[in-house]
Amino acid sequence: MQTIRHNIPDDLLMGYAAGVLPQAFDLVVATHVSLSDDARARLAGYEAVGGAMLDDMDEAPIGADSLEQTMARIAGMKPTRRTAPVRGIFPEPLRRIVGGDADAVKWRSIGLGARQSVVYSDGDATARLICIPAGQAMPQHSHRGLEMTLVLQGAFRDDDGVYARGDIEVADQQVDHTPVAEPGEDCICLIATDGRLKFNGLLPRIAQPFLGI
């Protein structure tokens, strides 16, 4: 079965809403949602499912002075300020982990003018930025698990069409594609991959009950 999708699939949005994705995938979803109102609206739907479940929970007994203790906590807190959005290539969640916009990335050459930078990695999954010169093919890579690619600058094309800023492609190990950066601008993508089979094959089915609604 070949799994390629242009929009972020419901299973990944639901996994993000539930808070069960590996961190590298959380980062790509949060960055994508920052760029797509459609994804934001769909995510809010899955969060509403979580809210309904919370509201239906059987109550746990709380401490007799819970409320007083909470008020004391509040008295010691600094007010939360709204952060003004910063204009740039990277939306806020990515900018936070990189420590700046695209010009702050510490790139490493991976040959043929292509560069990459690992922004987050743990035992579960890795998130990396990749920059491909305009008009050039991406380095060949295999998919051991699930791969989620979000375009941040420029565009790339493969058999499924053109992916531009904000577009997301999800591929699994059955997918064999050769993305090529479109002419014009260098293509910068944020890519999350997981090597563990556990992740692949589980999530693609979590949201099946919700699909097609």
Binding site: A18, M53, R205
Partner: peptide, 21 residues
Amino acid sequence: ERAYFGDLTHSEIAAETGLPL
């Protein structure tokens, strides 16, 4: 519920629910 508590296994997922999402 189990999807939201990260507690699902491979074989246990199926079915149509038809939530008005």
